[in-house]
Design a protein around this nucleic acid. Structure first.
Length: 285
DNA sequence: TTCCGGCCTA
DNA sequence: TAGGCCGGAA
């Protein structure tokens, strides 16, 4: 399985700039955080500009929150932009501006959870780690367990199953993780997978069993999204006018009704994504 | 309109 | 361990 996947990756992997060997660990961290929520096509230009502007953790930490939020633009989930900046501050102060390599230390950094820590260990430091993002989880669920999709939350058994496949050698482990992830992104997709292009189709339990649908289909998103959407509209208005707006102007600019506006603004203030300043609402200074 | 995701909180 | 957080593609 290793050879098939790594050879497939060598031929079919996308030439993404952060895969260049001279990419710094910090640049890879930035890319991972951006990619947590956003398709590669939109991360690409944002990452290029971001790294040119703030090449090291300290550079980012020294920028103001409002600058950072404006540069983050519409990448989504702006709390993560603030956490990334805080993360830069911790790395600058506690680790001499060098991203640590130990998993336990990475996990203490703001905005860095198990997936991102493992991805950094693999892709920045080329050391062995068990990377489990949704792409990899889906590929393994299909190939090994014959299931269409993995469960929502990670169980120990799933980690153990993945662990067995990761090579001992760090460089080979990094290649394995990258190859499985890319297969999930390009071929073994959630919908309409291209099994005819899959290098491990012969071994895939899911394909051999006729691609059965998941036992319990994921429940529909329903009616949510309105609050998040309202937050997004307010953030967009604040990015557009960094000098700030009166509350009345902000209601108008966001196009929200008062009943949607009020709780959304309140939650943004609580999250530190906005602040009030002499009767005006602004991005955090 | 529906779908996607890693971190964090409760 | 489930649910909230964002925006754009399909």
């Amino acid at each position: 399985m290793f050879i098939e996947l790594v050879e497939w990756f060598a031929r079919n992997g996308r030439p993404l700039p952060w895969r260049e060997p001279d990419t710094s660990p910090w640049a890879i961290l930035v890319c991972e955080v951006m990619s947590q929520q956003t398709p590669v096509a939109r991360v690409l230009p944002a990452w290029e500009e971001w790294m040119k502007r703030w090449p090291t953790p300290r550079d980012l930490a020294e920028a103001s929150p409002s600058e950072v939020l404006i540069a983050w633009g519409n990448l989504g989930y702006p709390r993560r932009a603030l956490r990334l900046r805080e993360c830069g501050g911790v790395v600058a102060k506690e680790y001499g501006n060098q991203l640590p390599r130990e998993r336990e230390k990475l996990l203490t950094l703001p905005g860095i959870g198990p997936y991102t820590a493992d991805a950094i260990i693999a892709f920045a430091y080329r050391e062995r780690s068990v990377v489990l993002d949704t792409n990899i989880r889906r590929v393994l669920a299909r190939a090994l367990a014959g299931e269409e999709l993995p469960p929502k939350s990670l169980r120990k058994a799933e980690v153990a199953r993945a662990e067995e496949l990761v090579p001992d050698d760090g460089e080979l482990a990094a290649q394995w993780n990258a190859a499985v992830m890319e297969l999930g992104a390009l071929v073994c997709t959630a919908k309409n997978p291209k099994c005819e292009l899959c290098p491990i189709a012969e071994e895939c339990q899911w394909l051999q069993h006729g691609r059965p649908a998941n036992a319990a289909p994921r429940k529909a998103q329903g009616f949510e999204g309105t609050h998040r959407q309202a937050r997004g509209k307010i953030m967009a208005a604040l990015r557009k006018t960094p000098t700030g707006l009166s509350r009345t102007e902000l209601v108008a600019e966001s196009g929200l009704s008062e009943v949607r506006f009020a709780p959304a603004l309140e939650s943004l203030l609580e999250d530190g994504l906005a602040q009030t300043h002499r009767g005006r609402v602004t991005l955090p200074r």
